[in-house]
Design a protein around this nucleic acid. Structure first.
Lengths: 193, 193
DNA sequence: CGCGCGATTGAGTAATTTCAAATCTAGTGG
DNA sequence: CCACTAGATTTGAAATTACTCAATCGCGCG
């Protein structure tokens, strides 16, 4: 087992119990992929082929509406997953951009390989079920925060939970993640209200 | 197979392929539950024991914040599932209320039974994995709409997608689902802007 | 039949956006 | 390594969006 896969192995161990053999099988379904800064791994109209685990680096998923406004859907740094979820699970064209914000190293599994993996061993199926369940819970918490909190409260909560993110992603991306304008976030940060 | 379970059977068939035998096993893990109008099936501080499929009726999940303001998290009518998702999957105390808005008939599975069911047959595991995946995708679409659309746009999209809901749930519940005040929704509806 | 909750309306206010200009910053080529 | 530039952030002022509070209306349920 390569040293660089340690965090991934750890990630898996936190979710399911696998034998050494199973672990090897699981990990070997993933391919190492390096992406340069500003490189896109997913673009609208192309179907998302991969589910991506971030070994190293930082990426951002966002959509662009008719007026050209960006909305950040997801951030990912080390030990996070990222893809256009809708596109990946339904295997239909993406609506998102997923771009590397830093030079990054990913572990990629493609859709067909994932299906085969899951059918080959119920433990693998369980792993993806647990991932999906937690994603749902996570998304639901985000919905709740979005509809119940003010812009300032959303930003403060964001800082508490993801202090790393604010160092590694541009302010305008964070603003659009939190559903507010760049200017307004700037004013919140600098207490200009 | 009882006639009243037909919609449930159909719901399952759309997601996985089961033998007659498997279908019987699966369905028998659920218990029929009738709830009266205004009855709570989940309350804050109590752990959500059940995942609930709605055979008949209408329910609403909501949270109440420190200032006493309600926010609707989810609606459920026939052929929808409802629970406090966070509470159920992590088996920790709920933060939501789930209340029957109409007299309703539910199919309930409790947490332990669900675990046993999943471990007894990979097909059942697949079913819950697919449910969770689709929930994540669904939640993500809701997040996107929340951060990209104005109040009016959110309401219009809601009407298109869930025209049934606006008949069966009170206006203030829909407003809080969409993250706006009751008064503002009323003005949108009646073009008083 | 009336009570009470939910929906509507009006007026004033708060939150947030928009637009435009100024300032800062990081990356690029010379 | 520095100067330049494009992009990112900040600031100000005005406009818009949405909320709050209070009063009224409407209607379904007991």
């Amino acid at each position: 087992m390569k040293e660089e896969y340690l965090s991934f192995k750890n990630h898996i161990n936190k979710r399911i119990l696998l034998s050494e053999n199973e672990m090897r099988t699981f990990i070997s379904a993933f391919k190492l992929k390096k992406v340069r800064k500003r490189q896109f791994i997913i673009q609208p109209d192309f179907t998302a082929t991969y589910r991506n685990y971030v070994l190293n680096g930082a990426l951002r998923a966002y959509v662009i509406n008719d007026e050209g406004q960006e909305s950040t859907i997801q951030f990912a740094i080390e030990d996070w997953w990222i893809t256009d979820y809708n596109s990946y699970i339904y295997q239909k064209p993406a609506t998102m951009f997923v771009m590397a914000v830093e030079e990054s190293i990913l572990l990629q599994i493609d859709y067909d390989t994932e299906q085969r993996l899951k059918h080959s061993n119920p433990n693998f199926e369980i792993f993806f079920r647990i991932m999906a369940e937690r994603s749902t819970a996570y998304m639901q918490r985000r919905v709740i925060e979005n509809i119940t909190l003010t812009a300032k409260e959303r930003y403060e909560k964001f800082l508490l939970k993801y202090s790393d993110f604010s160092q590694r992603f541009p302010q305008y991306a964070i603003a659009s993640y939190l559903g507010m304008s760049t200017e307004f976030l700037s004013r919140i940060k600098n207490n200009k209200l």
